[in-house]
Design a protein around this nucleic acid. Structure first.
Length: 594
RNA sequence: GGGGGUGUAGCUCAGUUGGUUAGAGCACCUGCCUGUCACGCAGGGGGCCGAGGGUUCGAGUCCCUUCACUCCCGCCA
């Protein structure tokens, strides 16, 4: 085809036998028999075994080439004999008898091997990302990511959405995450911010009358990393639609996700119509607003049990009197588990910073009784009531947590995952999607004790716009929703508030004056005053979707050039210091530390 | 900002109760080997045991400080 190759390393078969061909690629592996040498040549498309023996005068030269050298070989395709076929590779029926080679790219000694399934320290992988990316698994993950993004683009266009770009240099917003800031040379002392999401722009696109928009949008947030959260930057499938209700948004995403996940994975989808779970229910039953529905364990509230005369567990009773809650997790048929199993869970819970998990197992001889450290505190009729409230049966174990609502929710949520893992209750061959709906508009800030927006301040409160009762703000629910898969939050979204007068009122509750709103959200509030359509949308995280499809637990495994946990790019050496000249031009001074 | 884990050869790791000259596999170098596909065999080079301080006759090992990577909490509308 060109001077480098006639074929790729993944395409030759016995149909090509006797052909004179050329291939270019990396030396993946050598097997040197002294007078006979095999070279596995690798490119993006596959691996082809090439062979040469000492009868060729270049044999000695080839023998010396080190792994990962880039070479071009020319030679003839030979059909392999039956005993020597390699069924593990697509080109395993043939090999190429080398005539001549050209060295196209030499290599220094490798800091990490490419041909190996071994796991390596993150630091070395990130510093030599270009080597890491040659390795099979992550190479395939990145290709998957590309295909997923193309697929999404294609489907969104088919669903009638238009793709637009929005500015990268924009203005800082007061709500939410920390901004990345960019100093302005032409406007001394002023800064751009990189968008945390194109939130205001996508709403402006609706006000501009484009009806349906999407974008594979880069988002920038200066917050600390997690395994499923890149520091700095990530991508969202940003979606916004005009003249829609919540269910219209759900419809689009369910259509897209079902197609997407069926196309790129063989895992079963638990509910094809994604369950709608209210925020309140989710917090009660799962202790979390991102429940993993593959996990069958559910939490129930047993607070009222500890008001009973025939329950003598005084520690909990006292706490309940002073406002604490008691909630329970039930494990099915665990009566024969050794004592160490329960104690290790209790110990684990204490390590998580809770006061531990009390437990008892339900048994029956002549009457029902509870076995375990706290079993003796419960009468038979109290146990019957507990069984009713928790759906527990004889042989099941009841784990109890007592404390403030937030703490109980938190510990039981992680305990639910931990116990399910210990008991091997989670089917890894399933995707369990659900919608979490009816988020409260406001919540109390734990530190300031003031009312603040619990999610997106631009969300539309539920109820008729003209008849909203704003006197009990904590009771107001919003048309605000999350989509969750296997316990991973893929996205938040909302029907937006497109009524400026209402927005002023809602912001006032959170402590923002009309002037605050006008100055901080000028672009949007102004636009909403000139005929805004009702609209709403969502923004699923691309990286997390690919993570699920690639079956990876860490977002760096599906990100081509990620930063490390301290938001540094070890390969490009970013962030880096800049010259005094640059600082001067930007009107900046750096405060020297100490 | 806080808590946990890890740090020994280029890479992945072992290293006992504190005890002589710190080991293995892969990679690299040399030699042998014509059917391997994680080829095999023999030999070799390669170490500030993350860094600094301390305890001790003696520290990879014990103590303190610190750095790096990572996981978690806070944070992420």
């Amino acid at each position: 085809m060109n001077k480098y190759r006639t074929h790729t390393c993944g395409e030759l078969t016995k149909l090509d036998k006797e052909k004179e061909i050329s291939l270019s690629g990396w030396i993946n592996k050598k097997r040197d028999h002294g007078n006979l040498l095999f070279i596995d040549l690798r490119d993006n498309f596959g691996i082809t075994q090439c062979v040469i023996d000492k009868s060729n005068e270049i044999f000695k030269e080839i023998e010396k080439l080190s792994l990962e050298t880039v070479i071009k070989i020319t030679g003839m395709v030979i059909e392999r004999s039956n005993e020597t076929i390699n069924k593990n590779i697509s080109t395993g029926e043939i090999e190429v008898k080398i005539n001549s080679i050209d060295v196209l790219g030499k290599t220094k000694e490798l800091p990490m091997p490419v041909f190996s399934d071994q796991e390596y320290a993150e630091e070395i992988r990130l510093r030599y990302r270009f080597l890491d990316l040659r390795r099979k698994k992550i190479h395939q993950n990145i290709i998957l990511r590309s295909k997923v993004i193309s697929f999404i683009r294609n489907e969104m266009q088919k669903l009638g959405f238009l793709e637009f770009q929005t500015p990268i240099l924009t203005s800082s917003s007061p709500e939410g995450a920390r901004d990345f800031l960019v100093p302005s040379r032409l406007n001394p002392g002023k800064f751009y911010a990189l968008p945390q999401a194109p939130q205001q722009f996508k709403q402006l696109i609706m006000v501009s009358g484009f009806d349906k928009y999407f974008q594979i949008a880069p988002c920038f947030r200066d917050e600390d990393a997690r395994a499923d959260r890149s520091p700095g930057e990530f991508y969202q499938l940003d979606v916004e639609m005009s003249f829609v209700e919540q269910e219209d948004v759900f419809g689009v995403i369910e259509t897209l996700f079902l197609k997407l996940f069926k196309t790129f994975s063989n895992k079963k989808i638990l509910h094809e119509k994604f369950p709608r779970i209210t925020y309140e229910d989710a917090m009660l039953k799962y202790g979390s607003d991102k429940p993993d529905l593959r996990n069958p364990l559910e939490i129930s509230d047993l607070t009222i049990i500890f008001d009973r005369e025939d329950v003598k567990f005084d520690i909990f009773k006292k706490l309940v009197k002073s406002g604490s809650l008691v909630r329970a997790l039930v494990t099915k048929n665990t009566k024969d588990k050794p004592r160490s199993f329960f104690d290790s869970i209790d110990r684990w819970a204490k390590e998580q910073g809770s006061s531990g998990l009390a437990y008892f197992t339900l048994e029956k001889d002549d009457k029902i009784n509870a076995k375990g450290p706290i079993g003796k505190f419960f009468s038979e009729s109290a146990l019957l009531e507990i069984m009713k409230l928790t759906n527990a049966n004889i042989g099941d174990t009841v784990f109890l947590s007592c404390g403030k609502k937030n703490d109980v929710e938190k510990i039981l949520s992680v305990a639910r995952n931990k116990i399910a893992e210990d008991l091997n209750l989670i089917d890894n061959e399933i995707f369990s999607f659900c919608w979490i709906i009816d988020y409260p508009m406001y919540e109390i800030d734990e530190t300031t004790k003031k009312i603040k927006f619990s999610h997106n301040p631009f969300s539309m409160p539920q109820g008729e716009i003209n008849k909203l009762d704003l006197s009990n703000p904590l009771n107001i629910k919003a048309y605000q929703y999350d989509i969750v898969c296997n316990g991973i939050e893929l996205s938040s979204g909302a029907i937006r508030n497109h009524v400026p007068e209402l927005m002023y009122k809602l912001f006032e509750i959170a402590g923002y004056s009309k002037n605050d709103v006008n100055s901080k959200f000028s672009g949007m509030i102004n636009a909403l005053s000139y005929g805004a359509p009702p609209h709403g949308g969502i923004a699923p995280g691309i990286d997390r979707i690919v993570m699920l499809l690639a079956n990876e637990k860490n977002i760096r495994e599906v990100t081509m050039f990620p930063m490390n946990q301290n938001a540094q790019d070890l390969m490009m050496n970013a962030p880096s210091e800049i010259s005094d000249d640059q600082l001067k031009e930007l009107n900046l001074n750096i405060k020297k530390k100490k």
